[in-house]
Design a protein around this nucleic acid. Sequence first.
DNA 1: TATTGTTATACTCTATAACTATA
DNA 2: TATAGTTATAGAGTATAACAATA
Lengths: 155, 155
Amino acid sequence: MSAVNPPPLTSSLAFRLGTLGTVATARFAAAIESRGLKPKQVGLLAALDAGAAASQLELSQAMGVAPSLVVSLADQLEALGALRRVRDSADRRRQALVLTDTGRELLADCAALAQEVDAGLAAALTPAEREALRSALGILAREAGLPADPPAAHS
Amino acid sequence: MSAVNPPPLTSSLAFRLGTLGTVATARFAAAIESRGLKPKQVGLLAALDAGAAASQLELSQAMGVAPSLVVSLADQLEALGALRRVRDSADRRRQALVLTDTGRELLADCAALAQEVDAGLAAALTPAEREALRSALGILAREAGLPADPPAAHS
DNA sequence: TATTGTTATACTCTATAACTATA
DNA sequence: TATAGTTATAGAGTATAACAATA
């Protein structure tokens, strides 16, 4: 064999994460559909729960989406009773988004459904492989500035 | 601490793969932009190279997208000179998509760019962690029926 | 004048459905 | 009549840009 047979694109991290991300999101979307939720909405709830941001603008930055998208996501979640908008009395331009009890329940519900999706995705992995995967993805997420695990024990 | 503080949604495999997939795809898209390519087009080239399918219809199934999307992706790639359409002489309804030399060069180019993206993504991982991650993702991809690594050595 | 949130608009992506040609 | 590919159309999702309220 001569030169470096370059590693195939399909086994690159970027490609694998991209394709598996699509699959994972599709399965998660199917799982939460019965709750009337979509992945982006759950992402907003999770970011709120993680204390990632208070105002809508900060939230849009934390999620890496346009501010206008946060508005419509918040509209939908407010209609579901999952969160409330609270005006900042100090700076009345700002709206804080706060989870309601319903929102926390929905989020816990989605977390349980995610566990089921996880089980299906990782069925072929040994416990050790599963843990190594979880750990590595956690590091990547932190490095990429994505909503990390909630600070510590909350509640 | 009382009951099972349920594992947070943000650390689930489904959520992590989804968000990291978005990040990875965005970075990869930025990297290949100068070649006039988008991730889905590269995905088609990779599927072809992996010998995943011959006809356009089979390809659409292998990629999990609508047949009409394969048509437009193939149109664009044909315009770039990356592939040719060849009529099946036995069944003249079928079109085989075959990579050109240009297509193979583009693909190799993208693979190299993906390596750079990978380096950025995995910068915080030790070599052992990196390998464990690659291995686990490979298993997940195979399990999910995604375009796996090319069969063996091809050239 | 600058900033937060909102609304209006437009663009990209992708799927569904109708159509053509071969079988 | 059924199937491979194509075209036409429509929908979802998201961003950009204009606007309103507050600072």
